[in-house]
Design a protein around this nucleic acid. Structure first.
Lengths: 237, 237
DNA sequence: CGGAGCGTTGAAAGCCCTCAACGTTTGTGG
DNA sequence: CCACAAACGTTGAGGGCTTTCAACGCTCCG
C-alpha cells in the first residue's frame, strides 16, 4: 500500500489499518463492485485506478455522484448504513484492498483517533457531493467541465498522480457526460471549445491544463472544499 | 426538545445529548447562521422550522445543497472539518439548540454508540446529497419538483410534520428554483402544470400531494435512500 | 396608502439535446 | 499481419426545454 501526502495518521494507526485488510483484488475496467441495495460487509480502499459511484436513471443513462481516486476509501458509507443507496464500479482497471466491517468495528472500539479520521473521510466525500451539486446546478456546460477537471487535477496532484499540469485520466466523453449531466455530444463540443480557447486539452486519456486561472474563473472553482491543506485521507500508509 | 419517530438512541443517550446543549436560540426567517469559511465551534440541532445549506454563484443566485427540517443535526459536518465549505441559514423562522464542540468531544470519548449515531447522521446527509445530484443531473424540471417535494414529504412525515398527504412548506418559488437549479419563472410554470395535471398543489405555503404514484414515476422517486425504516436521526429525546 | 416581495403570464432567445452520419482508434481472431 | 467489428470521437442540422426580459396583479406590512 502506498500512502502519499500529508495524512493525519500515526505510523501505529497506519499499521492497524494495514493489518485490517483481508485481501487485495484487481478489478478490470468497467466492473460493478456493489449494486444499490446490496448489503455490504466490506469497505474498500482504492489503491490504484479510478472508480465511481453512480445511480441509474430510467432513460438508460446513469448519473455519477462521486469519483474515487488512489488512496480514497471508496464505500466507508456502507459501514454505518449497512447497505448502499447507489452502485459502485470501476472506470479504469483498479486495485482495491478489502477491509471487513468486523475489523472496522474493532478499529472504532480500540482506536478512537483513527475512527475520527474515518468519519472525517466520509465528510470529505459529502463536501465533494455538495460541490458536485453546485457544479451541475449553477454552471453551464463549459463551466462544469472546467470545474470538474480542476477538481480532479487538484485531487490527483495531492496524491502525486499529476505531472506538472498534466494528468492521466482514462474517462470517455460519455463518462464525463454522466458525471456532469450532459450528453457526450455536448461534452465533445465543449472540450473542443476549451481546447481552441487555449484553456485545456483532453486527448487520448490525458488532460493538460493550459490556463489554470481562466479555467478557475470559468468554473467558479476554489479548492477550499477539498480541505487539502489539513491532511487528506490518503489511504493506508 | 421533541424527539419523534423511531430512533436508535437509548434514554440515557438522549439525556447525554440534551445535557450537551448550551443554549437554545430563535432565529428569524432568512437569517444566515454560518458563512462559508468561518471556523465553527458549535453544532446545531434544529428543533423547529426549515433551514438550508447553500453556496453562492457568481451570477448572484445561490445553489441549495441541503434542506434541514425539525430534528436534523444541521452542521455536524463542521465538527470534524473545523470550518464549513458552505453557508447555513434559515428559510423560515427556526428554533435551534447549540452544542459546543467541546461537549461533542466528550460524547465521542464517553459514548461510542452515540458517536456512531452521529456519524450515521452525517452519512444520511451525504445520501441526500447524492440523490440531490441525481435529481438535478438527470431529471427535467417537472421531475425535479416531483422528486424534491416527495422527498420533503417523506422526511416531514417521518417527524410527524405532515397531515395526511399535506404539509406546510413556507418556501418561495425562488427558493425552489435555487434548490433545483431552475429559475423561479420556470418553477412557477411547472407547479402550474403539476396542479393542472392533478398531481400536486403548492399554494400559499402548503403542499398537497394529489397523486403520489404518478409523482413518484415522474420524479423517479424511491425513498430507499432516506433509510427511514432503520431509525432516522430525529434529534434529542 | 405606498412599496416591496411574491406569483403569474407572454414572447423571444439561447443552450443543450436528439438524430444522424462518418472518421478514428482499439482489440480480436483468422 | 490483416480484416473486421465495436467502441469512441467528431461534426452538422433541427428541435425542445429552459432562460431571459418584461409587464402586471396580488398580498402583506410599515
Amino acid at each position: 500500500m502506498r500512502g502519499r501526502g500529508r495524512i493525519g495518521m500515526t505510523d501505529a494507526e497506519k499499521d492497524v489499518l494495514e493489518q485490517s485488510v483481508e485481501r487485495i483484488e484487481k478489478l478490470p475496467a468497467r466492473t460493478i463492485l456493489t449494486r444499490r441495495g446490496d448489503p455490504v460487509s466490506y469497505s474498500t480502499l482504492l489503491l490504484s485506478g479510478v472508480m465511481c459511484r453512480y445511480m441509474d436513471a430510467r432513460d438508460g443513462f446513469r448519473q455519477l455522484v462521486a469519483l474515487q481516486v488512489t488512496g480514497d476509501f471508496v464505500d466507508l458509507h456502507g459501514y454505518p448504513l449497512r447497505r448502499l443507496d447507489h452502485d459502485v464500479g470501476t472506470l479504469t482497471e483498479a486495485t482495491i484492498a478489502l477491509i471487513p466491517h468486523a475489523r472496522v468495528d474493532t478499529i472504532l472500539n480500540e482506536h478512537p483517533h483513527l475512527a475520527r479520521l474515518m468519519w472525517r473521510s466520509t465528510l470529505l466525500d459529502a463536501a465533494l457531493h455538495r460541490e458536485w451539486i453546485f457544479r451541475i446546478g449553477r454552471l453551464d456546460a463549459a463551466g462544469r467541465l472546467a470545474h470538474f477537471l480542476l477538481e480532479t487535477y487538484h485531487r490527483l496532484r495531492a496524491v502525486g498522480a499529476a505531472q506538472g499540469e498534466t494528468f492521466e485520466f482514462e474517462l470517455t466523453q460519455q463518462d464525463l457526460g454522466e458525471a456532469l449531466g450532459l450528453t457526450s455530444v455536448h461534452v465533445n463540443r465543449m472540450l473542443r471549445r476549451l481546447r481552441e480557447g487555449g484553456l485545456l486539452d483532453f486527448t487520448r486519456g490525458t488532460v493538460r491544463i493550459l490556463d489554470h486561472d481562466r479555467l478557475a474563473r470559468l468554473g467558479e472553482f476554489d479548492p477550499d472544499y477539498l480541505y487539502l491543506e489539513e491532511g487528506q485521507w490518503h489511504g493506508a500508509g
